[in-house]
Design a protein around this nucleic acid. Structure first.
Lengths: 340, 340
DNA sequence: GTTAGCACTCAAAACGATTGACTGCTAATT
DNA sequence: AATTAGCAGTCAATCGTTTTGAGTGCTAAC
């Protein structure tokens, strides 16, 4: 059922005020601050109707009203007036990204830093591995008798965090032979394609099957989300919100937001094509603390998803600001990464 | 001035009890729990003498006594009965370290994890770069027209996080020539020695001076403590302590302990040869939150310092446990790293 | 040097009364 | 039929008072 325009307007004002003040909002304050042309009694009637519909709740009979999870969702999707960032804020984002854009990890870290600074909430993010990333060069560097470092150059970056074990008795010549065979076989292929290569594809390569399998293992590690792909910033920001005056709430919040594995599950499985995503803890998401809201944006460059970043904070969150920041950061980040 | 045996005993009991209960300790509870042979009035006299000496304080006339920073220092150095870890706990430490000991970064991360788990406090640590580390092999891998990855194999590890920019027009042959010249020049030398090499040391090398200077820059980065050398665990553990019921205290604590740069200054400049080090916030250490105590241990292997690890928590901290854990972790860690 | 005993102190808990910001409802008004 | 004024009723929050009891310090006796 569609709400009347007036109900929408009133609901929007309630959410606005509650986000601003953290205090249950009363009919009187609504008429005084936003609706000078109707009486508080009328507003009371509307409020009680909105309560009936599940958008508002009351702590007790004589208290003001507080928005429900339903109301916040409607607010973000329909009611909220979109915020614009100031020149200064946009310049700040640009500055941060441009001063250190060489290293992808730095960029990721900076993304959460900027988001947390500008929103004043805890920010979380995860860089999504790109299974379509294509291999250009593959190189082995033996540095111990039985271990070699695998260097993989792709279109976008240099992967250098995996090791393979070298079979006993393999000479340096054989290893560099393996290198050139594999290079020829794999270059131009995406990670996913490499992982799907069937055994019996190529005669000349058959001698290096073990090495090949090791490399596939290494690629698989790159293709999965790992704790090292997760970043978090500003965990202490939650304490600035008056509803977090309760130690047990803080503890609950921190026990999620200081642990990379938990943040990883928090951000896992976010829809691919949805840009801004709002999840509210009371709404049945197991991983999100009950009194929290998680707002995320999924960023892409050159048509592939590069990561999910967002903000976790009280349900009563400044969604206008958060959405504006996430969108602007996304725009700038995507433009930087697309230009490569 | 030396305390009488009885004063020492009483002070020890006060600290023990206060650490256990977090409640100011009274003369009555002391006689009941620990000193059945003297009357509470006698204890009261002794307590008031200890207060005179600066070891105890009272919140108000009719409250029990609380240890001062002075008292804790004496407690740790003199009064405390050293704790032993249980078999189970020692096995736990061994298990953690043995299951993933291949990668130095993992080991470092595990060190703080174990310390935090076993003590139930926030743990912090920093891996100290070793300026005496000796270079075995140096290798360049050009992966962009103007950039090469520098791989440096030392006695202990493979460094692979630095890039040098390659002069325009330099061919692959010239780069590999530079590689072998530098390899000959640098292998067997320590980082520090390399940084002190004077310009005019070698004719054959003079053509690659720029590359050499780039490599020195890279080594200097390895030789300084960086944020990536800092690890932290269990930042939420502080909330289990009843004296942290106050949001502003929590905020203060978290604002230090969620930021790598701050933890870095916290751990900076710890004496080289001191094993266990106790610093109490009220004692004039700028970086430590006023109501906190920082207990650190400095670990070495093969005669060189490998890092400083410890625990940060309330002044009223279980020093017996903490010291025991730090010592045991140290023993096991040092034995693992020395065996390399 | 110890100790029993008592007066005194003071934070914390318990209690009760008051306040005031709300709502819901009813009856009058538009 | 929708709006509104007016009033009774609700309830958390605040404030002041009292009570309680754990604790000390001091004195006089042992």
């Amino acid at each position: 059922m569609e709400l009347s325009e007036r109900k929408k307007k009133i609901l929007q004002c309630v959410v606005d005020d509650y986000i601003e003040t953290a205090v249950p909002v009363s009919s009187k304050s609504l008429t005084e601050r936003h609706l000078p042309n109707i009486s508080s009694a009328t507003v009371r009637n509307e409020l009680s109707a909105l309560e009936e519909l599940g958008y508002l709740t009351q702590l007790h009979t004589s208290s003001g009203r507080v928005p429900s999870a339903e109301a916040y969702k409607l607010y973000v999707s329909d009611l909220m007036i979109k915020d614009k960032l100031s020149e200064k804020e946009i310049d700040y984002i640009k500055k941060i990204f441009l001063e250190k854009a060489d290293n992808l990890e730095e960029v990721i870290k900076n993304t959460t830093k900027v988001i947390s600074e500008l929103t004043s909430y805890t920010s979380v993010g995860v860089a999504t591995p790109d299974v379509d990333e294509k291999i250009n060069i593959i190189k082995f560097f033996r540095y111990k008798i039985d271990t070699a470092l695998v260097l993989i150059v792709t279109e976008r970056r240099l992967l250098k965090d995996n090791y393979i074990s070298v079979p006993e008795g393999m000479t340096d010549e054989q290893l560099s032979e393996a290198e050139s065979v594999l290079s020829r076989l794999l270059s131009g292929k995406s990670f996913e394609e490499v992982c799907n290569i069937k055994d019996d594809i190529n005669d000349e390569f058959s001698g290096y099957k073990n090495i090949f399998l090791n490399v596939v293992e290494a690629l698989k590690v790159y293709m999965t989300v790992k704790e090292s792909d997760v970043v978090m910033e500003g965990q202490d920001k939650i304490l600035d919100n008056p509803e977090y005056a309760d130690i047990s709430k803080i503890k609950n919040f921190l026990s999620v937001v200081t642990k990379k594995d938990k943040v990883m599950t928090l951000l896992a499985g976010d829809g691919r094509d949805i840009k801004i995503n709002v999840k509210i803890g009371t709404d049945g998401y197991e991983e999100i603390p009950k009194d929290c809201s998680l707002v995320t944006a999924t960023y892409s460059a050159n048509g592939t998803k590069i990561g999910t970043y967002g903000v976790i904070g009280p349900i009563r969150m400044d969604y206008q600001k958060v959405v504006a920041v996430l969108e602007n950061v996304g725009k700038i980040l995507e433009s930087i990464l697309t230009n490569r």
